[in-house]
Design a protein around this nucleic acid. Structure first.
Lengths: 219, 219
DNA sequence: ACATATATTTAGACTACTCTAAATTTATAT
DNA sequence: ATATAAATTTAGAGTAGTCTAAATATATGT
């Protein structure tokens, strides 16, 4: 696969997970910051290679093979992210661009050794799960903070939005993965929450809560 | 610079070091396994960007800027080689292909952090010097084993040929960087040597000796 | 159901890089 | 010095990926 093909496969994978199975040409174009006509061309090519299912005007989905390829790329991306944070002291908002480049390096030995060096991590710095060598990942039983009931106690395990802006915001407010938190109040009017995080009370908007994953305290 | 431009600059750098300053179109083509006509095209392009000096039919040389770029790429290549060997347990004959890919990753922060992680190494697994951030490298005072006189004592510090075949040969014969050795005999007929390496006597051909660098024992 | 808006595809063109084949320049031999 | 060989460049074409503009298909509102 060329670099460009890999990027399309990855985009289709990400769009395919959330919501419907068939991905629209325009949404791929938007995510990849390219034109719909370019997407059509590439999708035809990927279809010839049996990486996607494509019927004109009906959208695209990954084949089993395409899915496997996507998982391989995501595995590499996320392992490199862990490497950058753990070994090279990158912050979690700095890793994405470099990992976008590193994910295309082709060498099974490299990626398996990297996995070993890092101690076979199960999630990346944003809390997203890392597929293993065979493309399997442990599904995390995590919930959006905005979806849990009052008095819920849990640990912050991931972010849904991993944009620089959001991550920097979390840093500024001392919210990090692994932090304990409890929902103290839910404001009906705007959906904002009063939470206790690591012993400190804090008001957060619905917008924030709906981009933070928590794992509910045992049970 | 595109990946392809970087590869040309690197090739011109390597060819420019050994021997004359002006590099021939054909030699670039041969090294890069491409056609001379492709070289001509690219060289014109690099010339426009002020990375090389080019006069038709007269050969090519790097400009100051081109040289700086080449050193940047070589720095990255060699640092990644050290990483692969030191951190991921690659053997010295396995690193080249992966480093060829990694050398094109663009991120100053990445490469400087990697340098730090590795403890600012001065040479790669083959004994070749690693340029620092400013493109300077400490010139090693090393000599080819085939060029030193009888009874010379020294330490093996590098290889001139870093092909898989040669490196595997050295491994098989337990010759590694850092090994102490002494020249016991020089056979006039074929230039072969009898050496003592780490306490073991061994006969090596002129061909081998002329691809091994040694650093002469203090003095 | 029909007009209109939106999504998607097609057609044709452009850039970067590569190639083959032919033309041109430089080097070499006698 | 001139013929011939070797190296190099030019001309023209091909591939991968992208784009714009136009054509076509699908969705939506009344």
């Amino acid at each position: 696969m060329t670099r460009s093909e890999e990027n399309y496969i990855k985009a289709i994978f990400h769009l395919g997970k959330k919501g419907t199975k068939e991905v629209a040409t325009n949404s791929i174009a938007e995510l990849m910051e390219t034109k719909p006509s370019s997407v059509t061309d590439m999708v035809k090519k990927l279809s010839e290679k049996d990486l996607v299912n494509y019927r004109p005007y009906q959208g695209v989905s990954l084949t089993a093979l395409g899915n496997k390829m996507a998982l391989g790329i995501i595995r590499k991306h996320r392992l490199w992210e862990v490497f950058l944070v753990e070994k090279l002291d990158f912050s979690w908002d700095e890793v994405h661009d470099v990992a976008e480049q590193l994910e295309h390096i082709k060498s099974d030995k490299l990626i398996d050794s990297l996995d070993r060096l890092l101690g076979f991590p199960e999630s990346d710095p944003h809390g997203d799960p890392i597929p293993d060598k065979n493309g399997e990942f442990k599904e995390r039983d995590r919930l959006l903070l905005s979806d849990v009931p009052l008095r819920t106690t849990g640990v912050c395990v991931g972010v849904r939005d991993s944009s620089t802006t959001f991550l920097k915001f979390l840093d500024k407010n001392n919210i990090a993965l692994g932090n304990q938190l409890k929902v103290l109040e839910i404001e009906e009017f705007d959906g904002s929450l009063m939470i206790d995080i690591m012993g400190k009370r804090m008001q957060i908007s619905h917008q924030i809560a709906s981009n933070l994953y928590i794992k509910i305290k045992d049970q």
